[in-house]
């Protein structure tokens, strides 16, 4: 099935949940709204002709430029993208989903944006979501055990955010 067919099928089925579509880029991607994500994912996994049963990767990408002089270079408005790379073992096809979030929920600094968890659809999402939460600061709603995974549990901040600043010290250890 061509990417275009898949997109129109998803648009038909889920309507508003499907946002922008970028088919010309190197890896074509489909934007999915945060709330519609679990249904779309479940559909993609369960439909026998799609069968995206393998979640390769979840990445968080922070689009933000703290320096106002450089901010003009930024493509689009400041945002946080959660990128889902899917793969179908049976059909050997791949698909990229993107959820575009505000950097902070309701623009209140310090409140993490929320995405529903897909850990019950793909088990591997469990750890990947923990990693994205840990490093990029996205709250995954409904995740069974959303803890930091790579950083220590009492670490502050989310290191892969562009405005993150390394703390001066951690438990008496000089960091900078």
């Amino acid at each position: 099935m061509g990417q275009q067919d898949l997109v129109s099928r998803l648009q038909e089925t889920f309507g508003n949940s499907i946002g922008a579509v970028q088919l010309e880029s190197i890896d074509p991607w489909i934007e999915v709204s945060a709330d519609g994500l679990p249904e779309v994912c479940r559909y993609l996994r369960d439909q026998p002709d799609l069968k995206f049963d393998y979640l390769s990767c979840i990445s968080g990408v922070d689009y933000f430029e703290p320096d106002p002089k450089k901010a003009v270079k930024l493509d689009g408005s400041p945002r946080l993208e959660v990128v889902y790379h899917l793969w179908s073992v049976a059909h050997k096809t791949s698909l990229v989903l993107k959820v575009i979030l505000p950097r902070w929920k309701d623009d209140q600094e310090g409140v993490l944006p929320e995405v529903p968890s897909v850990a019950d659809i793909w088990r591997t999402a469990d750890w990947h979501e923990r990693e994205v939460y840990d490093l990029s600061g996205v709250h995954f709603r409904g995740h069974p055990d959303l803890r930091r995974i790579l950083c220590p549990e009492d670490w502050l901040g989310h290191p892969l955010r562009k405005d993150y600043e390394m703390p001066l010290e951690y438990h008496g250890i000089r960091c900078r």
Binding site: S59, V61, V83
Partner: peptide
Amino acid sequence: QMGFYVVSDGSAIPYRARARSSCFCNLSV
């Protein structure tokens, strides 16, 4: 399967470099 994800804003330095680790997923089991 070792995955790499690179996002570029047009400069020489990637805007985001991401490594999808195979052992990370293997270990989660």
